[in-house]
Amino acid sequence: MESETMVMPYYKVNVLTGTKAAKVIADPAEGAAIIDRAKNPLYIFGPEVIATPVGDKLLIDYALKIAKARDIPICATAHVKKKMLEQGVVPDSTYDIIEIIHFLKDKEWSGVRGKGYHDLVLFTGVRCDLAERGLATLKHFAPHLKTYAICRRSHPNADFALPVIVKEEKWRDYLAGLIGALGAFKS
């Protein structure tokens, strides 16, 4: 089945006014395959990851598992670093969201681990209206990379987005499904 494109996200301030909308990745296995295929992905953690519970865990617990599963470097924006340090994880980079997007635009940039530009950028926990603006920047000015917004509120300006997921259990299932499916493509 052909995936749909996203027009109306959860937050109406993020409605797409344009022609180029995200492909909706409803099946987490499809999402895992996108991540698996990436050569040099980057994962951006926004402040919601340390403030939002998902079931009896925090969103960051899931996001860290996704990053660890494929050894994806993490950019801890806002004040996420503090919580990560408490959990014994040192982020690869601590640019704030707009700064990292500014660097991602530049294909010549060395990337957070010095391996050259990132071809896939994952986003979780960035304030939804700000994330949408940053995704629009990358959509228009970074043709060398793809973005995947792992956010239940959905993001039309990303290349890949989730459908709107209202129920928390479904959101947890999506995250767990993604973690479970990662690595399948490569192995």
């Binding site: 797409l16 006014t17 344009g18 022609t19 500014h102 940053g134 629009a136 920047t137 228009h140 000015f141």
Partner: peptide, 9 residues
Amino acid sequence: PFYAPFCDL
């Protein structure tokens, strides 16, 4: 300048 277009059009 860093731009974040609101609209594709």
